[in-house]
Design a protein around this nucleic acid. Structure first.
Lengths: 203, 203
DNA sequence: ACTAAGTCTTACGTCAATGTCCAAGTTACT
DNA sequence: AGTAACTTGGACATTGACGTAAGACTTAGT
């Protein structure tokens, strides 16, 4: 059939008729794939289908191959993250608080997609990868640089390290929640104290 | 043939003759497996064999199955980490400095085995898992608790979080090095400033 | 130099996942 | 109510990894 890739593009390039149940299936698949692959990155198409409550064939009806599924998945996740970032309104207030806000909305709350970070399929060209990560990185870097200029973030620290470290802490907090060692509230709490400590300039 | 599992046990239970090249092969396999699985956790036995510079069959000559290989791998890694921990001499000096020392020897230097953390094979019983992690966790917890008692580590922070966060930062630094965005020296440098900031009690 | 241990090549059987096809049944739109 | 879109179940070819086996060859130890 038709690949879903045309879906998230703005104006419909081809006047394709799409029924409601089809759309439901598609999002069910993507949700299930996110959930399942987060636990086992080697999960089968069948696993995903089962988790989505549909048959394996239906998956193939919308995504021509496993590759295509993962592709679409990455696109959607990226899109969600970008949305979350914009919602966090990074340009307002102290930069370190903005970092925390970012983690709250984007990572801890919305599901913490660690597989996204470590799912580098072989048949992905670096150009595409860059292109996908660029909008995210650009926003984050801008935030960090702003924070350093306003002396809310230690200018001594490399920008890349501030980002890595922050995301690592966010990921770690998400893990704690997922493992049941912390409640989401505690996780947010601990991030609120840890991130500023990490990035604030020494007095 | 005989499984390698008898190897790291203390006194040889069966007086097995082992030739030098066999031992060489075994460590070559284990090293290659560590290296390869760190990049792709779904790596084939053939991949590992190729990386080790031997044939696939030789792998099977020493490890009856993929499962057994991973098993042995986990054991060896655990052993190495424990050794590294003991070498870091955690009971001496300020606790936060000890944490940094730990990362330097155990993670950044010795190869940063992230796959160890995320490689939870289905057919692993939790009891065995606990048993494996116990010696490591015990040492680390003891360190953190000591630090909190001596007021070198913020007593407000949950012990589990101090550990997670520290390891997360160590892992992040290792990633930076692996990705070529930092030199090992810079990584150590940045850890030396970041860890204390993170865990030191607020003035 | 002899011998046992170890390795290599080739080959084979099994199994699970991918991807394809089709026919029959459901479900959404108008 | 009618039709096109969608889903489903079964069936099938293909591929790749696992695990096993046997014979020829090479290497280490004494």
């Amino acid at each position: 059939m038709t690949t879903v890739s045309e879906l998230q593009s703005g104006p419909p390039p081809s006047p394709r008729r799409r029924r409601a149940d089809a759309l439901r299936s598609i999002t069910a698949i993507l949700d299930a794939a996110t959930e399942t692959l987060n636990r086992r990155s080697e999960a089968t198409i069948e696993d995903i289908a089962k988790a989505a409550g549909i048959s394996r064939q239906t998956v193939y009806a919308h995504f021509p191959s496993r590759e295509a599924l993962l592709q679409a998945l990455m696109e959607r996740v990226t899109e969600q993250v970008v949305t979350a970032i914009d919602a966090a309104d990074l340009d307002t207030g102290p930069a370190d608080a903005a970092l925390v806000r970012l983690l709250e909305t984007g990572w801890v709350a919305l599901g913490t997609n660690p597989f996204l970070l470590h799912l580098t399929l072989p048949p992905i060209d670096p150009e595409q990868e860059r292109e996908r990560h660029e909008p995210i990185l650009a926003r984050l870097e801008r935030l960090v640089v702003r924070g350093q200029e306003q002396d809310e973030i230690d200018p001594q620290l490399p920008v890349a390290w501030v980002l890595s470290a922050t995301l690592a802490l966010g990921h770690a907090a998400g893990e704690e929640v997922r493992a049941g060692r912390m409640t989401p509230t505690e996780a947010v709490q601990v991030l609120r104290t840890s991130i500023p400590r990490l990035v604030r300039p020494g007095r």
